[in-house]
């Protein structure tokens, strides 16, 4: 049977060992985190995570492709006919039902901004082509309409609309 003195000295020792181990573990964690965090996008990449683009120069019926976060982005100035066509579609016909209004900004319905990668396997679709007057992906034959919604072919979803907003009448900020 251990005496009281032995007991308390054992306790003191155990406490010391646990405290040292705990402090060491905190130190190790503090070292590991920056070693992982360095893998995250760096400051120069983050600085370009949000870009501004002036859509004013795009004539009606034309589109441009810009780069955002390393991805191609279509900015299309749609004609009235295209907008009308997109709005007239019955949602029940769609594979990935979504209204045209949900894909554009209110008051700027003529502007369509989408990430230009086919939702199938990432090819860039060809504009003003396909059976629905929108985009056609030559890789595996996906057809998109004038709102960039998938209508036929293997792609599972509509072309993705990135987060963006109009900061003025013609200036959009993507990201």
């Amino acid at each position: 049977m251990a005496t009281q003195a032995e007991h308390s000295s054992t306790n003191r020792r155990d406490f010391l060992y646990v405290a040292t181990g705990a402090v060491g573990a905190v130190g190790a964690a503090a070292v590991v985190w920056p070693l992982i965090n360095q893998l995250n996008p760096d400051a120069s990449t983050l600085a370009l995570a949000s870009i501004e683009f002036d859509v004013g120069a795009i004539p009606e019926g034309q589109s441009v492709t810009i780069t955002w976060r390393g991805l191609p982005v279509f900015v299309r100035h749609r004609t009235e006919a295209e907008v009308a066509e997109a709005r007239s579609v019955d949602l029940s016909e769609l594979k990935d039902p979504q209204t045209d209004a949900a894909r554009v900004k209110e008051g700027h319905e003529q502007w369509l901004v989408m990430i230009a990668n086919c939702t199938h396997l990432g090819c860039i679709p060809v504009g003003e082509a396909g059976e629905f007057d929108g985009w056609f992906c030559p890789c595996h034959g996906s057809h998109y309409d004038t709102s960039g919604r998938i209508r036929r072919g293997p792609a599972p979803a509509n072309l993705v609309v990135p987060p963006y907003e109009f900061v003025s009448d013609t200036l959009i900020q993507i990201g």
């Binding site: 920056p34 070693l35 360095q38 995250n40 760096d42 400051a43 120069s44 990449t45």
Partner: peptide, 13 residues
């Protein structure tokens, strides 16, 4: 210099 300036924690690493 990119490492020192832009990479997360790069100056220290």
């Amino acid at each position: 210099e990119h490492i020192r300036r832009d990479v997360n924690g790069g100056r220290i690493i």
